[in-house]
Design a protein around this nucleic acid. Structure first.
Length: 264
DNA sequence: ATGGTTGCAACGCAA
């Protein structure tokens, strides 16, 4: 089984002990991190070595930052969308064996109508172009990360209250659907139709205790690969830790084999 | 009720 996870850690410096403990407990093939908030020279490469993991990162000072923690070294890592010179480090692409992996930290968007919201929509357009290009290559593809979009009403604790708000507004959800329409499958919803399944809870107002969350962290797979998806779990208990991230890991498992396009 | 908390870094900004 090929197991791959996403986790917005909201500062890898603060969360490193939790990340190492989770890695040791779960032993995934790939862990995609977002909001590391570290420059590349500050990245704790050596911390992962004793656990048998390699790391590549695309970081910046204070904000954003993405990384791929892998059991085998990645091939051809790429930072950012081709042809875009965005200084914000939100994209890390690499091949991990036979599978292409695209790790994303989608812009938050701040408030509908703001400049940051326009940037989010612009960015999602660039993402769509890149995913379309990758899918044309025909290799198995996983697109995962913090999408900062709750796709459907079932993914929101109080859809009426979130109507038109950032993370759930129609333009963002339309971009998410357009991404799926290219040929990607939401692995969690492929296997689980339950409501109340969230990946992020605000730090404020006891949101976690009241399960007032959103499902905004996703593992998407190209259609042929998604047909081989056997598990997709939200690791909700991680939010109960001391000093938790506001997001929890999402871990998916794929049964790779001779029938997978792009594999031997 | 535009509240509340966290992280970074510097008393504001982004989430």
């Amino acid at each position: 089984m090929f197991r791959i996870a996403t986790w917005n850690v909201n500062s890898l410096r603060v969360r490193l002990p939790q990340v190492l403990a989770w890695l040791e407990a779960e032993r995934p093939d790939v862990l995609a991190l977002q909001e590391t908030k570290l420059t590349d020279d500050e990245f704790p490469f050596d911390a992962f070595t004793p656990y048998g993991y390699h790391a590549v990162c695309a970081g910046q000072k204070t904000y954003n930052g993405v990384a791929l923690i892998t059991r085998t070294p990645v091939q051809n890592p790429l930072t950012g969308f081709p042809g875009c010179d965005d200084p914000q480090r939100r994209v890390l692409f690499a091949a991990v064996g036979e599978v292409d992996v695209l790790n994303l930290y989608v812009p938050n968007g701040a408030e509908v109508g703001s400049d940051k919201f326009e940037y989010k929509l612009w960015w999602l357009g660039k993402l769509r172009a890149f995913v379309a290009e990758l899918l044309r290559g025909g290799r198995p593809l996983v697109v995962l990360g913090d999408f900062n979009i709750a796709p459907e009403a079932i993914d929101v604790h109080d859809p009426a209250r979130w109507e038109g708000k950032v993370l759930f507004s129609e333009p963002e959800r339309a971009e998410f659907r357009r991404l799926l329409d290219l040929g990607l499958v939401d692995c969690f919803r492929l296997l689980n139709g339950e409501p109340g399944q969230y990946t992020w809870w605000d730090y404020r107002a006891f949101a976690f205790r009241r399960n007032m969350g959103l499902r905004i962290d996703h593992v998407l797979a190209s259609r042929d690969l998604a047909a081989r998806c056997r598990t997709c779990e939200i690791h909700r208990d991680v939010r109960k830790a001391e000093r938790p991230s506001d997001h929890v890991p999402v871990l998916a498992g794929f049964e790779l084999g001779p029938g997978t396009p792009g594999t031997a």
